[in-house]
Design a protein around this nucleic acid. Structure first.
Length: 106
DNA sequence: ATCCCTGGGATATTCG
DNA sequence: CCGAATATCCCAGGGA
C-alpha cells in the first residue's frame, strides 16, 4: 500500500509540469496546447520519481513509463506527438486537469 | 552497425 | 473472483 488513493500517471506528469523546479526534465512546449516534452538527459529522473511515488519494487525507467504512456493512446488521455520525447494531453484530459488544479488552489 | 526512441503483445501485480 | 491501471518483460522497426 502506497497511500490509499490512486494517483494516475497523467496526473503525476501534470504535477511535474506545473512545478517550475522540474522544468529541466519535463516541460510544456510553447505554442501548442497540452503538448509537453521530456528532456533526453533527465527523462529517467522523471521515471524514477514516478516509480518512487508508486512505491514499485523495481526502479521505473523511461522505457517502462513510456509503455504506460502508449496505453493512453487507446483510452485517449494522452496522444503521441511525432516529435522526439513529445506527447500531448487530449483536450478533455487537459480541461479536467486544469479544473482540478483550480479547485486545489481555491 | 550502434544508440536511442517508438510501438505493442503477453503476462504479472496491486488494489478496490 | 473480477476488472482497471499500470508494471514488467521482450522483441521488432526506424532514424540519425
Amino acid at each position: 500500500m502506497v497511500s490509499g488513493k490512486k494517483l494516475r500517471l497523467f496526473h503525476f506528469l501534470f504535477e511535474m509540469l506545473e512545478d517550475p523546479g522540474m522544468a529541466h526534465c519535463l516541460y510544456w512546449v510553447p505554442a501548442s496546447v497540452g503538448v509537453f516534452r521530456f528532456s533526453s538527459t533527465y527523462k529517467e529522473h522523471v521515471a524514477a520519481l514516478w516509480g518512487q511515488r508508486k512505491g514499485n519494487r523495481r526502479p521505473m525507467t523511461y522505457q517502462k513509463m513510456s509503455r504506460a504512456l502508449r496505453n493512453y493512446t487507446r483510452s485517449g488521455e494522452i496522444i503521441k506527438v511525432r516529435k522526439k520525447l513529445t506527447y500531448q494531453f487530449s483536450g478533455a484530459t487537459l480541461t479536467t486537469l486544469r479544473s482540478q488544479q483550480r479547485m486545489k488552489n481555491a
